[in-house]
Structure formats: C-alpha cells, structure tokens
Design a protein around this nucleic acid. Structure first.
Lengths: 339, 339
DNA sequence: TAAAAAAATACAATCGATTGTATTTTGTTG
DNA sequence: CAACAAAATACAATCGATTGTATTTTTTTA
C-alpha cells in the first residue's frame, strides 16, 4: 500500500522535510525552482497530505460539525445546503450527524465531535434535549457553538440563529381567525422545547388580540409524528366537535390529520380548517394543499454558519454571541379559506 | 482554555503517560487500583481523548465517508439511516457529503476524504460522473470503496450494492399489462445512466414476454424533474392519445404528471394508469396515491455498510468485491387498477 | 528467603506535518 | 573581494496518543 509522506519526497530529492512541507504550503521561504521540483515529485509519487497529522500539529481540524434531528426533514436539508455553501466558501469541511431526536445519540455525537476536535459546532437539538450538560462540554473545550432553530433557552456563550416562532404561531392563528374560525385548537410539540412553547405563545397572543378566549383544554402536546397527527385527528372527531380550525405545530402531523379527517368524511377547510408549520414539500402536494408557515431553512443555515465561522476566526477573543432572529412567513394554500 | 492531555494526568499522579494511555484503553497491563486513580483524575480534569493524535498514531480514523447526490431525497436519506445503523454497531463514525449531482463537487469531496484518511468510502455517484478517475485515487490510497445504487459500470476492485432496476422496470410494466393496459408509454431518465437504461430494458422485456410490441416512439428521456413530468403529461394529452398507461422512471415526474392530467380532466387510473419509481413519501399522499417501485433504501445502506466494514477489517488482504443485487418490490396503490 | 516468574510501570520511539531557530548559500555593496 | 545582508535550506522540537522494549516491583515457588 502506498504511504507517501513529506519525508519520502524529501529523501527522493535529498532535501529536508521541512522544506518540502513549506513548499507544499507555498511558503515564500522556498526558492521557486525547489518548489517546482518538490511539487513535481509530489505529484509523481502520488502524495496526499495527511490531514490528521497536519491538523494535530496546527491544532485545528478545518471542520465544522453539524448536529440535527434528521436530514430527511425539508427544513433541515435546506439548512444544510445553506451551511455547506458558506462553509465551502471559507474552506471548511462539514460533517453532518443526525440525533434522530434521541438525547443519547446526540450526546454520543457531541462527544465524538469534541474528541475529533472540530473547529466549531452548529446544532439544532433533539426533542429529548432539555438541559444542555453535554453541550456545556463543547464550550468548556473552547469550541465555538451556534444553535439554530431549536435551542436551549438559557444557554450562555453561544450564538443563536432562530426563527421568530411566536410570530409564526401568531401569523398562523390570526390567519385562521381572519378566515372566520372561532374555535381553534392547537397541537403543539414537547413543551420543554423552546420553539414549540413559542408557537403556542403566538397562538395565545393572536387569540387574545382578537378577543378570543384561550382555553388550555384545546391545546395538546405530542412528538408530532404521523401517528400523533392521526391521534389528534381522532380527537377532533370525538372530543373536540366544536373546533372549526386546527393549528398543527408541524406539517407532518397536519398532513396525517388531513388524510384521516378526509377519510372520515370531513371537508377541509369547510368543516375544519387546518394549518401546519414548516412548509415541507408534501404540503403542496396534499389535497387540499396545506396552508403553512415557511421558515427559510437556507437562510438560517447560512447565517448560522457565518456566525460560527466568525467566532472560529476570533480564536480566544470575545465571541460574538448574538442572537439573530428571522421572520417566518405565511404560505396560504387550500386547507384554509379566507373570505 | 483547557488542554488536558494524558501527560497532564500523568504529571498530576506522578506516573508515566504510557500507563495513563493504557489505563484509558482499559489495558490489562495496568493494575486495577492505578486504573481507577487514573480514570478518576481524568474525569476530574475533564480529559477528552484527542482523536487526531490517536488516529494518527494508529493509522486509522474510525470514520466512514458517505458521498451521495443529496440528502433530501427520500431514498438517500433512508440509505443513510441504514448506513449509520450498521456503522454505529461497529463503532464507526459516519460523515456525509453531498455532491448535489456535480462532478466537481464530488471530486473535492473525495479528495477531502482521502486526506482525512477515512477508513472507507460508500458512494452513489452524481449524474455527471461518467468515468471514475477521482475514484481510482481512492483505490490507490488503499481505502476500501463500496458503490450503492448509482455506480460506474466497469469499475474494478470495489464492492457494489445495487438495485435490480431491470426487474423493477419489468415489475412495473407487467403490472400495467395485468391491469389490462395495451399501450404503455415509458418516460425514462438520461440514457447514459445505468439505472435508467436498466429500467427501460425491464420495460421492453415485459412487453416482449406479454407479446406486446415495443415501439421506441413511446419511450422518452428527460431529467425527470417536475417540469419534465408536466411536459410528458402534455404529450399524453396530445400526441399520445392512444396510450392507456404510463410508466415514469421516478416518482417526482409521475406526480407532476398526475397533477397535470387531473387538472385536464383525466381520470386516473380509468383513463390512464400511472406508475412511478422510488416510493417517495409523497407518492402515498397524492390522490390517487401512486403505484410505484420500492427500492428499500434502508437495506441497501445497511448492506453497503456491512460490505464496506468487512473490507475495512480485512486490511491488506484480498477484499470482498462482490456485487450484491437487491430486488425492488411493487407497491400497488390507486393510480393503477388491477381487475 | 533467594531465585525465578509474573505483573506493573517507565522509557523512548513513532505516527506525519509544522514551525522557530540555526546554519549555509547566494547576492549585494563599498 | 571582504564583509554583510538576505535568501534558502537544514536542524530539531512539537502536537497527543500509542506501543514495543526495558526496568522495577510484586508474587510465586522451591
């Protein structure tokens, strides 16, 4: 097996390996002619720099770790696109890991990123992540951290790029109200997750502003998977017959509910209006197409990565721990009907 | 900033760093009592092993690189799930990179994986990848390589895990025939891509076996994007009025066509039966739900990873370069009607 | 209890690249 | 062309962990 190192090259040319190293890094301490000879020999031998060694010595890794619940969600995959774009522009590699909403997996991943000495971490935490003990390790290891979307409320010393979920919840709810709905149920996610609390709070504010009564018996929490959507639809058909609109905190559950309600003979939006959150691609395909809130994943990814790289470059200096908040937008489709 | 190394621990306990290293690796060359002292001190100081150093010394990276067109496609994200599962079981990390169907990006990624000394690579190549010069580098660097799904036909010295696309095309077409369709159009992808050629060939074989005439004027090629699906639907409404069934080589185009045809007043499957390929989640959501071919991404990922790890463990020995071929299955839904 | 065997620990080289400092070579100038 | 500056190159330490070998300590055995 090939094992070409700078020492191989040095030996072949009868020069010192330090000169080879400098030549390969295009240092001006090496004469042009020597440089050329070295580069040629390197190509000839099929030399590939060993990043492990280089990074160990330089105490960097040139790599950004991205941790998120799952890559298959549209919002996250567009965020990845944004992150990769920016990272590439600055010469960083990106490694992506999925927590699959499991805290234990997230801990493993984080530990792994730390031991692999990534230069920075961008994270959107799992549904099971309440406190951030494992995340504190990141800070203690001196690795810059940026949250995006799902964050931990009181976590200090990190940048954050968030969606104004309260505004999103508000927009969704007010839209339903404008459609003439009077009794609006809200199906939220785990309440120890900031984003879901905020969507709920936006829902409350919209009700309040429009003089509707907030009744906590019309608010539910679940993990918002497909099965949860079905369970909620079932609930709408039985216990919640007076409800004329439902605001789901994500599209997946909203769509599962729509399918179930249709099968049960309900008309959407006439009998019950439905609104989701996230603007997944399927929300456009389902019939009726789903009114939802768009979060601009690409932009959030881009901004998170820019903030992170800014902090990586600052080194030990005071980091930029600002919180950037993006505005979500309402995408009106056929599952709600404004009159 | 903290910078705890085994030497820190060694100094604190006035022992040698080699003993510390062995203790942390649970070697039986260290007395239980010493081990305990070391582990305790390590925890106290917040020690995190530096994988860069460890991997450099051991000449491994414990990491598998995965290269694929895009993580947002359902097939690929399920394949990732399969890969991650197996990798985790064997103690490997996975780093995922997207080529976004661009050869240039794929080359950058590969180079990067090599310099980062990953232990093995799993790849599904981009649409632009015809020859595999950049992939040869992988082999030359002694890194085991496994293709999955999209591969390069004559590439030697690698494992492959493929879908039997010809069978898939055959199943799809024969299903349409069994539904009583007589005139079946096929909308294929770029013909320089193996998988699409194979699906076409399965289509031909099914026609032949059932004594239907293959007419190449009823076969078309495109990149199978949404717009292509619409263009094909348009064609069905005008030039191809005698067609009573259409086999699309992916779901995205099939769904775009269904939407267009419905809008034009066609009944599916009565007026025209439609079948797709891939079993994307939307295919279940659209109305009528789309009959399609499932590729079992999870399994392909799992098998690819198992094969790769097998080869990684073999070290320098002769690798297992078998080609595993998986059978796709027909998922019957409402866009076709068997009688 | 002394010698031999076994266990525990220390020493030192190593992985491959980088980098501060020392030395040699080349170039410039009076 | 001697003297000095500048350029090019060599030397050697280093990053942090691992590991073969040497040494010390403990245990076993005769």
């Amino acid at each position: 097996m090939k094992k070409v190192t700078i020492h191989e090259i040095a030996r072949a040319l009868e020069i010192d390996s330090s000169t080879v190293s400098r030549a390969l890094n295009d240092s001006n301490r090496v004469k042009k002619i020597t440089k050329d000879r070295i580069l040629e020999k390197a190509k000839e031998l099929g030399y590939k720099r060993n990043m492990l060694a280089s990074n160990l010595r330089k105490n960097v890794s040139n790599t950004i770790g991205v941790v998120l619940p799952r890559v298959s969600r549209h919002f996250f995959s567009t965020a990845i696109a944004g992150i990769e774009n920016v990272a590439q522009q600055h010469g960083f590699n990106v490694i992506i890991s999925q927590s699959l909403e499991q805290l234990e997996k997230e801990e493993l991943i984080i530990n792994n990123l730390i031991t692999n000495r990534v230069d920075g971490i961008i994270i959107s935490v799992s549904m099971e992540t309440k406190k951030g003990e494992h995340l504190k390790n990141i800070i203690e290891s001196g690795i810059p951290l940026v949250f995006f979307d799902r964050h931990i409320k009181d976590f200090q010393n990190t940048g954050k790029v968030l969606i104004d979920d309260e505004l999103g919840g508000f927009l969704a709810t007010e839209h339903l109200i404008k459609c003439g709905c009077k009794k609006i149920a809200h199906f939220s996610g785990p309440q120890d997750i900031e984003v879901y609390r905020n969507r709920l709070s936006g829902y409350q504010k919209a009700l309040e502003k429009n003089s509707l009564i907030y009744d906590k018996n019309y608010t539910f929490s679940s993990r918002l998977m497909e099965t949860d959507g079905i369970a909620m639809a079932e609930k709408l058909l039985t216990e919640l017959k007076d409800v004329d609109a439902a605001f789901f905190a994500n599209d997946v559950s909203a769509i599962a509910a729509i399918k179930y309600l249709k099968k049960a003979g309900k008309n959407i939006p006439e009998d019950i209006a439905i609104i989701g959150f996230s603007n997944e691609p399927i929300s456009e395909i389902i019939e009726p197409s789903l009114t939802t809130i768009d979060q601009s994943g690409e932009e959030i990814g881009r901004l998170a990565c820019e903030l992170l790289i800014q902090n990586i470059k600052k080194g030990n200096k005071v980091l930029n721990n600002e919180t950037v908040i993006l505005n979500p937008t309402l995408i009106q489709r056929d599952s709600t009907k404004s009159n």
